[in-house]
Nucleic acid binder design. Structure first.
Length: 469
RNA sequence: GGCCCUAUCGUCUAGUGGCCUAGGACGCCGCCCUCUCAAGGCGGAAACACGGGUUCGACUCCCGUUGGGGCCA
């Protein structure tokens, strides 16, 4: 009795993959995977003016990066004859009719309606024309003028529209291209889509599509209209709110599973849980706990979610992910030294929220040509701290091993001997070793740098002090 | 403008008539830990848009107002 779930995501390849679009893709994909159903990717490229091959590739690339696979892939441009065939069938059945009205006439009609304060829809003047004319024509569907259409929405319950709001909409233009609503319905019918999960910007279109379903003699599928994502000003999310494409977030150093986690939590929840792996989502996601009110996109929380996911990863698995970001920093890390890099990552990881941050914070481990942060140097690289650095240097040279513990012991000795606080030698050392005042525990950092490099950096700092700032 | 959707802390949300003096999370503030920064721990400020009903009882149900979003132009 239970039929197989078939859902689709139908992007227009007129630009990059938008995170709002991704969110509805996610609802579809996880719903399909949860139910063991089929996920269809349908490229709606009928707008040849604005559709580009690059854009299609970027969408597919985005899906691959996110780990979202598809079971079937279609392009509407390859399906033109199907739409024409269905349209002709409807013409034969007299459910649609030829309309010869020119754009000028329609314009005129609209103006008059406006002047008379009537709804601006088509008045149906070609509806009862008996003989075909030798003129270009569009195909219009006969819409009911009375009664109402009830759309059953899985998330919102029944939504009622008055049919008086509908007019005889065009399904096929005079150039034989299908209109949006017609192509969508034909495709959904042909592809046996069982659940249409999409943005609620399509809700008001649904009665028109319902009309087409009925004309075609099909029961409409289940609908679930998901609310949209807004920017912080409660306006529709757009470029001026910052990054809006999946590609951008990838380059900003976000993990695919973090982006997925954050986006799907916008409008969906599972008790108090915040962090979900894709595998968990497959298990838990359901339409029953999807909300209906619009959500505001909060980049801050995305960053936090990303940090959570990053810290669930081992340093080893992070290495390949980090590669492009390390390259962007202009760093060269010796290939053979993976074990060392693993340790470096381990201590930097909990201080980084994105791959980009992590790659950036790694830099002083692999290059020593940094300058000193001005304020820090003024405070910690002074005549007073110079002898401490020198003493540190001596002690380091005397150590039998350069482990964090040994380095720490050396620091402690100085603290004892000088009667100072650890911070008054740790910070100067930090400046010397990293150029800044912030880093993982200095003993860890120095040990990772190695004795030779540490001594070199101490020397450089000492001569920096001697050169008189 | 007409129609449709929607309304719990600044934000994401839990809540499905009594469990709510409304819970969690991000962010913010304070304290602890501490060589810096994080992470972590503890604590704090912070919300049921408004007005009517329904009910013994409403955050929860109904109506309206207002705000926000969308579609059609």
């Amino acid at each position: 009795m239970t039929q197989e779930v078939r859902v689709r995501f139908a992007p227009s390849p007129t630009g990059f993959l938008h995170i709002g679009g991704l969110r509805t893709a996610l609802f579809n994909w996880f719903f399909a995977r949860h139910c063991g159903g089929t996920f269809i990717l349908r490229i709606e490229d009928t707008d040849r003016e604005r559709s580009t091959e690059d854009s299609i590739q970027e969408i597919l690339e985005g899906f691959r990066w996110l780990g979202l696979d598809w079971d079937e892939l279609y392009r509407q441009t390859e399906r033109q004859e199907i739409y024409v065939r269905y349209a002709e069938r409807l013409l034969d059945e007299q459910k649609v009719y030829r309309c010869y009205c020119t754009p000028e006439e329609l314009q005129e009609m609209r103006k008059r309606a406006e002047a008379e304060k009537r709804p601006p829809g088509y008045d149906g003047r070609c509806r009862d024309r008996k003989e075909p004319l030798a003129l270009p024509f569009a195909l219009r569907i006969k819409a009911p003028r009375e009664g109402s259409t009830v759309i059953k929405d899985l998330l919102r319950g029944p939504v009622t529209f008055e049919n008086s709001q509908l007019d005889d909409l065009i399904i096929l233009r005079s150039d034989k291209t299908p209109t949006y609503n017609f192509a969508v319905v034909v495709d959904d019918v042909e592809m046996r889509v069982t659940h249409v999960i999409r943005g609620d910007d399509h809700l008001a279109n649904t009665p028109r599509q319902d009309l087409i379903y009925r004309a075609l003699g099909w029961e409409p599928p289940e609908f679930a209209h998901v609310s949209m994502i807004l920017g912080t000003d409660k306006k529709r999310l757009s470029k001026r709110h910052g990054a809006t494409s999946v590609q951008e977030y990838r380059h900003l150093g976000f993990l695919p599973e973090a982006l997925i986690n954050y986006l799907i939590r916008l409008g969906w929840s599972h008790g108090d849980q915040e962090i979900f792996s894709p595998a968990e989502l497959k298990k838990l996601f359901g339409l029953d706990s999807v909300g209906t009110s619009p959500a505001i996109f909060d980049p801050e929380k995305l960053v936090w979610v990303n940090a959570q996911h990053m810290n669930r990863l081992s340093p080893q698995t992070l290495i390949p992910l980090l590669k492009p970001f390390v390259a962007e920093e202009g760093l060269k890390i010796p290939e053979e030294d993976e074990n060392h890099l693993t340790r470096v990552i381990a201590c930097l990881l909990e201080r980084s929220r994105t791959l980009k941050e992590l790659a950036h914070s790694i830099r002083y481990f692999y290059r020593s040509d940094f300058g000193y942060e001005e304020k820090g140097a003024k405070k910690f690289l002074t005549a007073e701290t110079r002898p401490r650095l020198q003493k540190l240097r001596q002690k380091f040279l005397a150590l039998t091993e350069f482990s964090p513990e040994a380095v720490h012991a050396a620091f402690q000795e100085i603290v004892q001997e000088e009667g100072i606080k650890l911070i008054s030698v740790a910070q100067p050392a930090r400046l010397a070793a990293t150029g800044g005042t912030v880093s993982p525990p200095i003993t860890e950092v120095l040990s990772l740098l190695g004795r030779e490099e540490t001594v070199n950096r101490l020397d450089r700092a000492i001569s920096h002090i001697e050169s008189g700032d």
